[in-house]
């Protein structure tokens, strides 16, 4: 299973998470988002980029509670709450956004 991309295949697991984080590019993110029926607006990119930065620093995708707390601190309470995040990522922010960000499925994810 994989995303066909630039004539090559980026492998993913049965739920659509990239098998090799190293293959992620912003263009591939657009493709994964498309598979999730999501258009990559600036707001969605903001969350995806935040997740990538967090993973880069801590080697773990944050749980939703941690994500909202951290977003609230860096971008304000109007963005750091689960309603806002579920609006952007209806099937679960940590889950869908992490998938688009090329990260593994978060531990204890919602």
């Amino acid at each position: 299973m994989g995303y066909m991309f630039n004539g090559a295949e980026a492998e993913h697991d049965e739920e659509g998470y990239l098998t090799d984080l190293g293959q992620w590019t912003p263009e591939l993110a657009l493709l994964i988002a498309q598979a999730e029926n999501l258009e990559m607006t600036d707001e969605r990119w903001e969350v995806v980029n935040f997740l990538r930065d967090y993973y880069e620093e801590y080697q773990v995708a944050p749980a939703i509670r941690v994500l909202t707390k951290a977003l609230s601190k860096s971008m304000g309470p109007e963005k750091g709450n689960s309603e806002y995040l579920y609006e952007l990522f209806p099937y679960g922010p940590a889950k869908q956004a992490c998938k688009i960000a090329g990260l593994p499925k978060p531990t204890g994810c919602i």
Binding site: E57, Q59, A63, V66
Partner: peptide, 13 residues
């Protein structure tokens, strides 16, 4: 996979 960085995220949890 190294996981020592994860200990630094524990505070967030």
């Amino acid at each position: 996979k190294g996981f020592s960085a994860i200990y630094r995220a524990l505070g967030d949890y």
